[in-house]
């Protein structure tokens, strides 16, 4: 797969520490704020970089292992960076009854990764979620922020293709001398 040329190189360690320090400094030193701090870090970095644990631990006066213990308890927190297009497959009861696991398998096959992994080019990551509360639209897949209801195995390829086409178009437009010249028409 093509690498996205517009993506910035991964941040270096001092940069990460600086970002984290900025986030943590916004919070009081109260134990009750541990989860909100971790949420703020994840909101900014999309995952919890390994540097988070000792840094937050020092801020709150608790051990890094304690921070990790809390972070790993909750499903929301990730320890690896997600893809640029995170794909989440709902496997709630309604989606299970309507064969959501087959949708998940199709994504796994098409992307060549397992659930919980990210593709080598960091374009896509695949996760399962317990329920997103759109049960009447089951089975449901969430690509980025968009919820796709009534999924079918045959829709999977189309969805991925759509993302790829959008990306290639963006690349072409970026490559063109004047990005404003072309009208971003819908298709």
């Amino acid at each position: 797969m093509l690498l996205n040329p517009s993506a910035a190189p991964p941040p270096t360690e001092p940069e990460v520490l600086e970002t984290l320090g900025g986030i943590v400094a916004r919070f009081d030193r109260r134990r009750a704020l541990l989860v909100p701090i971790l949420q703020a870090v994840q909101a900014q970095c999309a995952y919890l970089p390994p540097e988070t644990m000792p840094l937050v631990g020092r801020h709150l006066g608790i051990a890094a292992s304690e921070v990790y213990g809390v972070a790993s308890f909750y499903n929301q927190f990730r320890f690896f960076p997600p893809g640029r297009h995170p794909i989440r497959i709902c496997l709630g009861t309604a989606c299970h009854v309507k064969a959501g696991d087959i949708i998940l398998e199709n994504f796994e096959r098409k992307l060549g990764i397992q659930e919980g992994q990210t593709t080598a080019d960091r374009e896509f990551s695949l996760e399962r979620v317990a329920c997103v509360g759109c049960c009447a639209l089951a089975p449901v897949a969430i690509v980025g922020e968009t919820v796709h209801g009534h999924m079918q195995p045959s829709k999977v390829e189309g969805l991925l293709l759509q993302i790829q086409i959008a990306r290639e178009k963006a690349q072409r437009e970026a490559a063109a001398a004047s990005p404003q010249a072309e009208d971003p028409s819908d298709d």
């Binding site: 329920c131 509360g133 759109c134």
Partner: peptide
């Protein structure tokens, strides 16, 4: 904290 898969009335 509506965690039940299949329920979404609180939301």
């Amino acid at each position: 904290d509506e965690g039940d898969p299949g329920a979404y009335m609180d939301r």
